[in-house]
């Protein structure tokens, strides 16, 4: 089965009304499997029973909020699937909150009030525009760099990158392209 019917989405929200809205939209557009969980701990259990393709999660939940849940998914030793794309819904659009969400390893941010279009846009983003997955001592999640600055001159992007090795790699790639 191809198409949206082959996708499995998990919706995590402790507010039953918001959960039913998102679930109804997803089912309405033909998402094959839509499961629900009322908090982070419940979501973890649901994920263990069957790994979803996308998780849509609320930020303000009790007792485990969306940030803790995302960090658990990304870093817990018993995480069912640390790479799963996470879309975070929240009414908080302050810079500090957005940064906290980003640093928790969330793929996409969905500000409330949610509209069908913004929800669809985020689903499209995780399917059509995936980002490399980064694992460091302080961060596990999709690459937080969405754009490359215009003044960026080199191929290396991290402090630990070896500029000489990167230059050699770039030169080798160029030679390869010329040969082909």
């Amino acid at each position: 089965m191809a198409g949206l019917g082959s996708i499995h989405v998990l919706v995590v929200d402790d507010n039953a009304h918001m959960r039913s809205i998102v679930v109804a939209i997803l089912r309405g557009i033909g998402i094959g499997t839509v499961k629900e969980a009322c908090d982070g701990a419940d979501a973890f259990e649901v994920m263990r029973a069957g790994v979803p393709d996308v998780v849509i999660c609320d930020l303000n939940m009790d007792p485990i909020d969306g940030l803790d849940f995302s960090k658990m998914v990304r870093t817990a030793a018993d995480s069912p699937f640390p790479f799963v794309p996470i879309i975070m819904m929240t009414g908080h659009t302050e810079r500090s909150k957005v940064e906290a969400v980003r640093d928790a390893g969330v793929n996409e941010f969905l500000a409330k009030p949610i509209s069908a279009r913004t929800l669809m846009d985020r689903i499209i983003a995780v399917i059509d525009r995936p980002r490399p997955f980064i694992k460091t001592a302080s961060y596990v999640g999709p690459c937080r760099r969405r754009t490359s600055p215009k003044d960026f001159a080199g191929p290396w992007r991290r402090k630990t990158d070896d500029p000489e090795a990167e230059k050699a790699k770039l030169a080798a790639n160029k030679t390869e392209k010329v040969e082909t």
Partner: peptide
Amino acid sequence: AYALSISETPEIFPRSFMLQQKIGG
């Protein structure tokens, strides 16, 4: 479980188009 061990050396996993493959486009 796909547990990720946390190490000092950053690891970069390439972009995965698994979901596009799953839905067929």
